[in-house]
Simulated scan of single mutants.
Amino acid sequence: MERRSLLRAAAVGVGTAAFSGSLWRQAMASPALPGTSPYGALQPADANGIMLPAGFSSRVIARSTQTVSGTGHTWHSAPDGGACFADGSGWIYVSNAEVGSGGGGAGAVKFNSGAAITGAYTILSGTHRNCAGGATPWDTWLSCEEVSNGFVYETDPWGVNAAVQRPAMGRFHHEAAAADPVRKVIYLTEDQPDGCFYRFVPTVWGNLSSGTLQVLKEVSGVLSWANVPDPDGSPTPTRDQVLGAKLFNGGEGCHYRSGICYFTTKGDNRVWAYDAAAGTIAVVYDDNVAGAPLTGVDNVTAAAVGDLYVAEDGGNMEMCVITPDDIVAPFLRITGQSSSEVTGPAFNPAGDRLYFSSQRGTSGSGSGGITYEVTGPFRTSL
């Protein structure tokens, strides 16, 4: 084990652990340090204002308050968390609307096998500040409200079935969700300075209408899951109901891959890896190193090869890649949009197209949001 890994394992506190052997590479548990991107340096900004590595290109998919090309659908303001779903030989990209006062919800854009847009539509409306969320193995999108006593809504990416409120998943400042099909649970993050890391255990896997909400706790250095007595969160917030609940400083995006749930915390600018089988947690990235490029950690996704892609809320409007060999480097940068944030990164099923948004675009307002697609030689092996 490298010295810096030993130091970080100690620094993150009792009850955390570094991984070893094959899990070391899979979870990237040694904290990533600045280095050279596997894709090389960023090139000058293209016509869309996006700086990308050589060989990559961008296109605009949709603009908030404007009609999506080739459709009659007006794209929502303040696009945030997103995901892709296979649709025959094509796919669907869904995106949340982080708009308050009942103006939130989610929309979708449908693509054919050639990546041409074939449709766009609303899949959720009338909700509040739908920030991030997560896809389920049964092809629904969990859209999460980032408000006090917020709900999770289960939505249909095809827009056929009506969205359903899932109160059993708890009412709190929801941020993101990630499904673990092995343990048959949904992990949930909470966007509060003293937020918690939760998991929802459905009574029947594939049906989120009932189940048990649990919170990660730490007592005498031992991590465990405890039932939340009152998932409704009123009058006592869910994060205050269990003695010893482990606190995280502003939970943001989360993504499950190969036994690991990765999630970000904006208050301390960290990326975490929860090893579900071992019941341990480690820091993948911490910006407390010289030259750290990733600041304002937010939404996160992963490529099939194992690279993590972390979007910035603030910073210099970058999306950074964290590789399995512990290198963190910028993958793209959006220029001329310093009052915005990068949101909703998601790969199409083939892994050769990356979707994301600039939530407030060049205007600095949610009505100026822009949703992009990047194509290029994404690596398929290490």
Rank of each mutant, 00 (worst) to 15 (best):
K246P: 03
A292S: 15
Q66P: 00
G244K: 00
A329Q: 07
W141P: 03
S89C: 00
W24I: 00
D275I: 04
T74R: 15
G250K: 06
E154C: 02
V328L: 10
G351F: 06
G291A: 01
G315R: 07
Y93H: 14
G306E: 02
V222K: 14
C196Y: 01
P157A: 10
G376Q: 01
R379G: 00
D46N: 15
V164S: 11
N269F: 08
G133W: 04
R4L: 12
G267Y: 08
R183T: 13
G104D: 03
F263E: 10
A179E: 07
T238V: 15
A350I: 00
G119R: 03
E312W: 05
G49A: 12
Y198Q: 05
A32G: 09
E146F: 11
G250Y: 02
G253C: 08
E318M: 13
Y153H: 15
T71V: 05
C84F: 08
T67L: 00
D139K: 14
P157H: 08
F378G: 07
G55L: 07
P157D: 03
M319L: 14
N288K: 14
T323W: 10
Y355W: 04
V271H: 02
R360S: 12
A329W: 04
P349E: 10
Q241P: 01
G134P: 06
V215W: 03
A106Q: 08
G351K: 10
A346K: 07
G314D: 06
M1Y: 11
F19C: 13
L6D: 08
E98Y: 09
C261T: 15
Q214H: 03
G344H: 07
A86P: 03
V219T: 15
I322Y: 10
S5R: 11
T36V: 15
V289E: 05
V222Y: 00
F111T: 04
L208Y: 15
A54P: 01
V14D: 12
N130D: 09
C261I: 15
Y309R: 04
F248R: 12
H174A: 11
S363I: 01
G369V: 08
E146D: 15
H128D: 15
V109E: 02
A177C: 14
G368C: 08
M319A: 06
A245P: 01
N112I: 08
S5W: 08
Q241F: 04
A168Y: 01
S64D: 07
L354S: 07
L33P: 02
S209M: 04
M1L: 13
Y355T: 06
G126T: 10
P237G: 11
S258H: 12
M1G: 13
T74Y: 02
W75M: 12
T371A: 13
G195R: 04
G206R: 05
V201C: 05
D194Q: 14
R4A: 08
T301H: 09
F200W: 05
V185L: 02
P235R: 08
G134T: 10
A278R: 15
R63Y: 01
G221H: 11
M1S: 14
T236H: 04
R239C: 10
Q165L: 08
N112Q: 03
S363H: 01
Y93W: 15
G259M: 11
T236P: 06
A9D: 13
V305P: 00
R239L: 04
L188K: 03
R59H: 09
L208R: 05
